[in-house]
Simulated scan of single mutants.
Amino acid sequence: MTEVETIIQGAPQPVGRRKLVIRRFLRNRVSVAALFVLLLVFLAAFVLPHFVPYSYTDMDPDLNQKLKPPSSKHWFGTTLSGEDVLAQTLHGLQKSLIIGFCAAFLSAVIATVAGSLAGLLGGWTDRAIMWLVDLLLVIPSFIMIALFAPKTKGNSSLLLLTVLIAFFGWMISARIIRGLSMSLREREFVRAARYMGASTWTVITTHVVPNIASILIIDTTLAVGGAVMAETGLSFLGFGVQPPDISLGSLIGRYSSSALNYPWTFVFSGAFLVTIVLCTNLIGDGLRDAFDPSAKRARAKQRGKRADRKAEA
C-alpha cells in the first residue's frame, strides 16, 4: 500500500446531505424534545382510546358522576351529561391531528404544483396562476368556509373541512416556490432535461422538487400548526366539525363558558392544542436551522446586535 492510499483511507469520509441534516437537527435539543412530545401526542390520540373503558359518547349511568373532577374512575373528570372527558379529548385530538396534518400536506402539494408550473412555464400560465393566487388572497377565507359549513355534517365533514382549509392556505407558499422555480429553470440541468424532451411534470418531480425539498419540509411543518389553529377556530365558532362528532375546537367552544367553574372540561383540550402548535413550530425551526445553518448564525448575530444596542442605551 502506497503512502497516498494510506492517507486517503485515513481521511474522514464525506457525509451525505441527509445525514448531515439529521445530525444538525439532533443537536437541537429543543426541537428533538418537541418531536418526542409530538410523537407521544400521536400515540395518546390513536393508541390510548383502545384502553379507555368509555367511548366519547358514553354517559356514566351513575347520576352522581356528572361534572366530577378527575378521579381514579374518570382520569380527566366528567361533563354535565356524565361523559368521560378523557375519551372526548382523545377523540377530538384525533380529528384535529388528522385535519391539521392532511390539510398541511394537501396545501403543500397544491403550492408545489402551482408554483412550479408558474415558475417553469412563465407566460400566460404564470399570469393565470398568479391571478388566482391574488384573488384567493383577497377573498376572506373564513366566510367562504362558513358558506360550506352546513354541508360538513356527517361522514364527509373531515374531508370537506380538510380540503377547504388546504384550498385557502397554499397561496403564500406557491409564491415562494414560483420564485425558486424561476431561478431553477435557468440552471444547466433543467435546460438539459427540457432539451432532451422531458415533460414539465418530469422536470418538476425530478429536478425542481428535490432542489426545494428543504423549503417544502419546513413550510409544511410550520403549516401544520396553522391548519390545526384554523380548524380549532372554525369549530369553536360552529363552522367546523359538527355534532355529534367533536374536535379540540368544538370541545373548547362547548366548555369555554364553564372553564372557571369546571376547569377540567376545558383545560385538557386547550393544553393539547397549545402542545401541538408549539411542538410543530419548534420542529419547523429546528428543520430550518438544520437545512440552513447560516440562517441560525444570522439570527444569533442580530440578537447580539440588539443586545449591544440595549447595553449602550
Rank of each mutant, 00 (worst) to 15 (best):
M1R: 15
T2Q: 14
E3I: 15
V4D: 15
G10K: 12
A11M: 15
G16F: 04
L20Q: 12
V21M: 13
R23I: 02
R24A: 14
F25E: 07
L26I: 14
L26Q: 14
L26E: 06
R27F: 09
R29A: 13
V32D: 05
A33L: 14
A33G: 11
A33F: 13
L35A: 15
L35R: 06
A44F: 11
A45I: 00
V47C: 14
V47Q: 10
Y54D: 05
Y56N: 02
Y56A: 05
Y56G: 00
T57A: 14
D60T: 04
P61F: 09
P69Q: 14
S72Y: 12
K73A: 14
A87N: 09
L90P: 00
F101N: 00
A111Q: 03
G115V: 01
S116M: 08
L117V: 10
A118Y: 03
G119C: 08
G119D: 02
G119S: 10
L120F: 07
G123P: 02
D126G: 08
M130H: 06
D134H: 03
L137A: 09
P140I: 09
S141D: 05
F142T: 05
I143M: 12
M144W: 13
A146S: 14
P150L: 11
P150Q: 13
S156K: 07
L160W: 02
I165N: 04
A166L: 10
F168S: 06
M171R: 03
M171N: 02
S173C: 10
I177H: 07
R178C: 04
L180F: 14
S183P: 07
R185K: 15
E186V: 13
R194W: 08
M196C: 14
G197T: 08
T200S: 13
T200Y: 10
T205D: 04
H207R: 07
H207S: 02
V208T: 05
I217E: 02
D219K: 04
A223P: 00
G225V: 01
G226W: 10
G226V: 06
A227W: 02
A227T: 06
A230R: 06
T232L: 09
L237I: 10
G238V: 08
F239G: 01
I246V: 13
G253P: 02
R254N: 05
S256P: 00
S257Q: 11
N261L: 09
P263L: 05
P263W: 06
W264K: 03
T265R: 00
F266K: 01
F268T: 02
S269W: 03
L273D: 01
V274E: 07
I276V: 11
G284P: 04
G284M: 05
G286Y: 03
D289L: 02
D292G: 07
P293N: 12
R303H: 08
G304K: 11
G304L: 11
R309D: 04
A311I: 04
